[in-house]
Design a protein around this nucleic acid. Structure first.
Lengths: 187, 187
DNA sequence: ACCTGAACACCGTTCAAGT
DNA sequence: ACCTGAACACCGTTCAAGT
């Protein structure tokens, strides 16, 4: 006799993302997530292969949320305005979900890797805006330059590497301008 | 009656770094490190507070090695040449010790954080070269821009985010040039 | 068809007992 | 003074038994 489902993959991912940001990666235990969705630990394995899979699903879910935010952000005509909006959106995302952000490109964790489709979707808005600034032939490398800088800057910020002083908001804003001009230089 | 020491903190850190790069962060178990230095697990706690402490010590050790390499790299008169040498040195370090590199600024792991002195020492060469390019008043933000870009680029490279094709070496080299010109622009 | 308790392997850590 | 085996708590994971 079938038992009605007492939870769902969506609920599990939502709970896992909450735990991930509240307690960090080490705090994400199967027990903790099971408690949060009102089920026993072993039941999670009905919907999720293992803990690594759950982490990947959570980061993937966060990446999709980021993609939506980025797509919404770049709605102006001026590509410089759009690039700033994209950079600000990425930084807001990172502050809201630092652990997920850190795992997005974490070189340390080969096991938690996003699918190419998720990556491509989240790159779309940046690629388009970068292309408008640098020329479509240079779109890819321009986009990489912007994302690399922004990811690096925000990672260092979150890691507390900017202890030498100075206003981090100002530094970020200034950096966006510099990078924008750097990729807008035609040759 | 005193027992002669059968290992040392240095040997433990060396072994831990080896395991860290060979097996990744999850592979760094106390048991594994103990085996590598020829001692039982509990003995490690005579020299190390806990596993987190051992990770931090390992990353700190890697950071010191990086500092030496950076100091040696920037020996030319032309700051552009030096900046390229510094960028190449950082990238070589990252490829040699990807896990340590990832932990250097990992936003995800607040527990494994380098001391300000270690950070300051490793920044010195970059700060000096950046200052020579951007002017000493702009040295700090110029250095941050370079390091943020390089860290982000290499992280994405190691994370496999550059699957869209193109020669990564060329992209890195090109990026160094762009960033160099961006921070060399006086205003 | 999903959920559960019991069980297992593994790991970090402590500690009393050895030398 | 350092090392060890035993022990404990905790966690991921499996599985037979329940409904």
């Amino acid at each position: 006799m079938p038992t009605p489902a007492r939870t769902s993959l969506e609920a599990i991912i939502r709970a896992a993302r909450g735990v991930l940001e509240a307690e960090g990666l080490d705090g994400l235990t199967m027990q903790r997530v099971a408690d949060a969705v009102g089920v026993r630990g072993p039941s999670l394995y009905k919907r999720v292969r293992d803990r690594t899979d759950l982490i990947r699903l959570s980061v993937d879910d966060a990446a999709r949320e980021l993609t939506v935010a980025l797509d919404d952000a770049a709605d102006a005509d001026d590509p410089r305005v759009n690039l700033r909006a994209l950079a600000d959106t990425l930084r807001r995302f990172a502050h809201a979900y630092p652990t997920s952000f850190g795992l997005l490109f974490a070189p340390t964790r080969g096991d938690v890797r996003l699918g190419p489709d998720t990556l491509a979707a989240s790159s779309r808005a940046v690629l388009e805006t970068a292309g408008a600034l640098a020329g479509s032939a240079r779109a890819l490398e321009a986009a990489r330059t912007v994302v690399a800088w922004a990811y690096g800057f925000i990672s260092m910020e979150l890691a507390g590497a900017f202890q030498l002083g100075g206003d981090v908001d100002v530094a970020y804003s200034y950096g966006v301008d510099r990078i924008t001009e750097a990729i807008a230089l035609r040759d």
